[in-house]
Design a protein around this nucleic acid. Structure first.
Length: 513
RNA sequence: GCUCCCAUCGUCUAGCGGUCUAGGACGUGGCCCUCUCAAGGCCAAAACACGGGUUCGAUUCCCGUUGGGAGCACCA
């Protein structure tokens, strides 16, 4: 039954409802019988190394990765480095690092399109030999002129086929090679996300597959590579929707099995248009440097265009266990930075303090200096501080800012002038000294005991409010008017450092005027 | 212009003919909590683009309109 379905439909796949099931079957171009036993799913992510990993690309990679892992397939990474100008080892590394940082892995060895030139050239020769492609001596200028005339008719321009029957040989001078694309029939496929898709073959035209300098074009290279790598499912951005018919024609001309296609809706910017490098933050690297966790970025990206009931937060493990193309949307989605903030904080609240401490390290160093960050890193109070800070930090950068007071040496702590002016009232000096004495007398250095010392001090001083005392201490110990609960803060800072800071504040206390 | 695609609160979405006086989340506003900042709790405002069908019955199916997006290379 399966075999029959694949034998009759050029690009089978069944309805959307059956898509996931069909996904386990071999590519639709396979002959009947060949499909009798399920074959391994093979997918790939094929970024061009532009110097950074784009969030759109990261999401495509994530969908590929998650779906493939879920189905026990093989996920490959292929660098599309045909554009020599932009392709450097550094920009390739940026893409690879980005993927690793997000938590993705891939199988077999990383491959590069540039390594496959021979394959592309051979494929073109074969097409030529079989007369499925032909040499074309039309120059860009000539075509441009003809195209301009054509535009008046209002139809979509396709190559007019002037050289199609000319039979130009290898020695015809500068020439391109064009694929013969049928002028009748349809180039259709069953998209795993978009459902029945395709268009009339005649609207495609005989497209160039080899430049006059002998280099192959993108479409030829991708198809040949995908065939060679035995890719069974092509999962990519919806910007390739329009490219698929021509690529279908290439698969046919190559007598190659046709993979299944799944196109993902694009991520758009705040104005609903394609993400722009100028307006929007598009690189994964940017978010990493701004203090977002990989878990947060993955959750954010996976939820644009896909959902699983009302669940908002997904670990990588959940993503790979739950992701399905069937539940993937068809409409483009906005990437909302505020939602990312919330997601990031949610992860900050969930992750173990040890993990956050490690992630925080570079941010702390940036907010203070290497020495201070190292000192904080080995301070036993750090994990406790992180537990206090996770409720008030949307990013690691923010957390590091709030942790500055802790990392800084006692003598280097600076006081916020406005906070001093507001909270260091001359009359508070005596109670503060009393509080210091109460703290010194403490046997246990923990929030409850510290609170008791505060209460005792308050009881000694008629009319003194809890707020003013807490604020005075807060400024003395953190330099700022905002911090986690004062008892917890002192507990985490430690007895010695607290007392040193109190002493230092007392010494700097303003006198009554 | 042509081709292809899309359409539920501002945003991400649930909904796969009756369960919808349309649910959740972010954001926004209010209240509570409170030593500051947060976090948290409660409440509120906020959407099925429009018009035709199909049907006993449409947010859900079909067709138009409108709006939006993507693609129309000897780029990838």
């Amino acid at each position: 039954m399966r075999a029959a379905a694949f034998g009759t439909i050029p690009s089978a796949g069944g309805s959307r409802g059956l898509a996931e099931k069909g996904a386990l079957l071999p590519p639709s171009g396979a002959r009947p019988g060949y499909s009798a036993r399920p074959m391994t799913i093979r997918t790939r992510f094929a970024p061009s190394p532009t110097g950074f990993l784009h969030i759109g690309g990261a999401r495509t990679a994530l969908y590929n990765w998650a779906w493939t892992r879920r189905h026990g397939g093989v996920f490959l990474l292929r660098i599309e480095d045909t554009d020599r100008a932009r392709s450097t080892a550094a920009s390739e590394a940026a893409v690879v690092d980005g993927l690793r940082w997000l938590g993705m892995d891939w199988d077999e060895r990383l491959s590069r399109q540039s390594e496959r030139g021979d394959l592309h050239r051979a494929a073109i020769e074969t097409l030529l030999a079989r007369d499925r492609a032909y040499r074309c001596v039309c120059t860009p200028d000539e075509i441009g002129a003809r195209k301009q005339q054509f535009v008046a008719t209002g139809a979509k321009w396709t190559y007019d086929g002037r050289c199609a029957e000319a039979n130009h040989g290898p020695a015809c001078g500068p020439h391109t090679v064009r694929l013969r694309v049928s002028k009748t029939g349809r180039l259709d496929w069953q998209d795993l996300v978009f459902g029945p898709s395709g268009q009339d073959a005649r609207e495609i035209g005989d497209m160039v597959i080899r430049r006059s300098d002998g280099s192959p074009l993108y479409h030829l290279a991708v198809v040949v590579d995908d065939v060679d790598m035995r890719i069974t499912h092509v999962i990519r951005g919806a910007d390739h929707l329009n490219n698929t018919p021509f690529q279908l024609a290439l698969y046919r001309a190559l007598d190659a099995p046709i993979p299944q296609f799944a196109h993902l809706p694009l991520i758009v910017g705040a104005d609903g248009r394609k993400l722009s490098k100028r307006r929007d933050h598009v690189s994964v690297q940017h978010f990493r440097e701004a203090g977002y966790l990989p878990e947060a970025l993955c959750t954010w990206l996976v939820r644009i265009g896909w959902s699983h009931g009302d669940q908002e937060i997904f670990s990588l493990a959940e993503i790979r266990a739950l992701f399905s193309l069937e539940a993937t949307h068809r409409s483009p989605g906005h990437a909302d930075p505020q939602k990312l903030d919330w997601i990031n904080q949610t992860w900050i609240k969930r992750l173990p303090a040890e993990r956050l401490a490690a992630e925080l390290q570079p941010f702390l160093a940036a907010a203070t200096d290497a020495d201070a960050a190292a000192a904080a890193g080995s301070d036993p109070g750090l994990l406790g501080l992180i537990d206090l800070l996770r409720e008030r930090s949307k990013t690691l950068a923010e957390m590091s800012e709030r942790a500055r007071f802790f990392a800084l040496p006692d003598a280097a702590l600076a006081y916020d002038p406005k906070a001093v002016q507001k909270h260091w009232k001359p009359a508070l000096r005596t109670p503060l000294a009393a509080l210091r004495d109460a703290l010194v007398a403490l046997t246990a250095w923990e929030p409850a005991a510290i609170e008791a010392a505060f209460e005792a001090t308050l009881a000694q001083h008629e009319g003194l409010g809890r707020g003013p005392l807490a604020q005075a201490v807060r400024v003395a110990v953190t330099g700022s008017a905002a911090s986690p609960g004062i008892y917890e803060t002192l507990a985490v800072l430690g007895r010695e450092r607290t007392l040193v800071r109190l002493e230092r504040a007392l010494a700097a206390w303003p006198a009554a005027s």
